[in-house]
Amino acid sequence: MIQREEAPASSAVPRRRGRAIVITSGKGGVGKTTTTANTGAALAATGAKVVLVDADVGLRNLDIVMGLEARVRYHVLDVLEGAATLDDALVTDKRVPALRLLAAAQTREKDDVDTNAFRDLIGSLRERFDYVLIDCPAGIEKGFANAIAGADEAIIVCTPEVSAVRDADRVVGLLGDERSVKLIVNRLRPALVRRGKMLSVDDVNAILRLPLLGVITDAPDVIISTNRGEPVALDAASPVGASYREIAQRIIGTLTTPPVVPHDKSFIEKLFGSRK
């Protein structure tokens, strides 16, 4: 059922290959799953065929954030073990028809997943989708190894905290040189940055030195939309949603300008009305 992704060099028929991007961070709780859901939704909203793969076996959450928990019938391990076909297991999104979800197994463990089989699964998904986004579990153990195996691109999600930056730095090292690695700084609070109470995007990236894909502010919209199981990226009125849509455009390549780092106006700027 699952074919090896590496087509022989002599193969006459050029295979369609989507991009496999792993969303990872090392540290837990920095917003990998939210980033996966929203980036995926924003990509699919442009018409691209997107599948989100939850690689966090044992702690399935992506379906919840997507609001698709009631539709999940089969999971990754069912597919890997032949208990279900890929078509049976792929859940179609409620709002964006081009978006699919492959849920993780909740009652299994990461060690139950064979890394090579998972890599092959990603390979076969790349033949059917334009973008395969893999939601990586926290940590750098087996679950991490599985999640990155089939991906040749990575997005690092990092919050402006010492621990998150340290872990991100470690993960960048583990990803190796052969993968393209980009950065999303999540949960930035511009008012705190201005007052010298939070690391800035520049502070974070002075350490990580990665191409910046986007900056997401710590906004209530994200919490509210997650409560409802509706990706904020699909909310046309939300500024954070707009940030995710820009991230999608940068991934596709239709937006080449670097992200504008949200800036909190100082007292003086507010007084005189900055025109920026």
Partner: peptide, 25 residues
């Protein structure tokens, strides 16, 4: 208040975070 703090040379917590990060890395 923070302005006064900075004026008197007390490092901001983000500066402390930056230094801790530098050392740990």
């Amino acid at each position: 208040f923070e302005f006064i703090q900075r004026f008197f040379g007390k490092p901001t917590s983000s500066a402390t975070a930056k230094e801790r990060l530098r050392l740990v890395l």
